[in-house]
């Protein structure tokens, strides 16, 4: 995988002073740059008359650029540079990152990814919707479940059966 999960060290989020967690971004860029270069070196040298460049130079250039950017980024952070976190209609930036909610949403998403083939879209999609709604603080359990089940069924029938989109039936094969 080209992109690794970044763990933003969100320990300090105070607006005053530098945003030290940004050093994590720099470290991530260094890691990514090294990874791209190492991967490019592994490719056997390959150049022919109809392709004098071969598959190696572009990743190497990108890797070097990543390392340079990481260096410039580090300088920027030490000088107090910071990126504005994205705001939005439903976003309250005065609060700290609510890791519990984020992790619950990720868990609901992961459950869907693991179960989709075996259990089928109707079951895994229901779990995804219900789990996310719960994580985000909806406590109308019955209504949540009703919405989740009906959305899954509607999408399954309209997309998988109606439009021929690939959605697995899974456990409920033959029942739906």
């Amino acid at each position: 995988m080209s992109v690794q999960t970044r763990e933003p060290e969100a320990a300090d989020e105070k607006p005053k002073g530098g945003d030290r967690a940004q050093y994590g971004v720099c470290a991530f860029l260094v890691l990514l740059g090294v990874m791209v270069i190492v991967d490019a070196m592994r490719i056997s040298h390959f150049a022919s008359s109809n392709d004098p460049v071969g598959p190696r130079p572009v990743p190497i250039i990108l890797g070097v650029l990543l390392l340079i950017t990481a260096a410039v980024y580090t300088v920027d952070v030490t000088r107090g540079g910071r990126g504005e976190p994205e705001s939005g209609e439903d976003i309250d930036l005065t609060s700290r990152i609510d890791w519990r909610t984020v992790l619950l949403v990720i868990a609901a998403f992961a459950v869907n990814a693991v179960l989709i083939e075996w259990a089928g879209w109707v079951i895994s999609g229901t779990l995804l919707f219900w789990g996310t709604a719960f994580a985000l603080g909806s406590r109308h359990h019955f209504r949540n479940l009703a919405v989740a089940v009906s959305l899954s069924l509607i999408t399954f029938y309209s997309f998988a059966i109606g439009l021929g989109v690939n959605l697995p039936a899974g456990l409920l094969q033959g029942i739906l």
Binding site: D90, I91, L136, G137
Partner: peptide
């Protein structure tokens, strides 16, 4: 969705 989950306005 994840970013909003982190900072959801209640």
């Amino acid at each position: 969705a994840l970013w909003t989950a982190a900072h959801l306005r209640r």
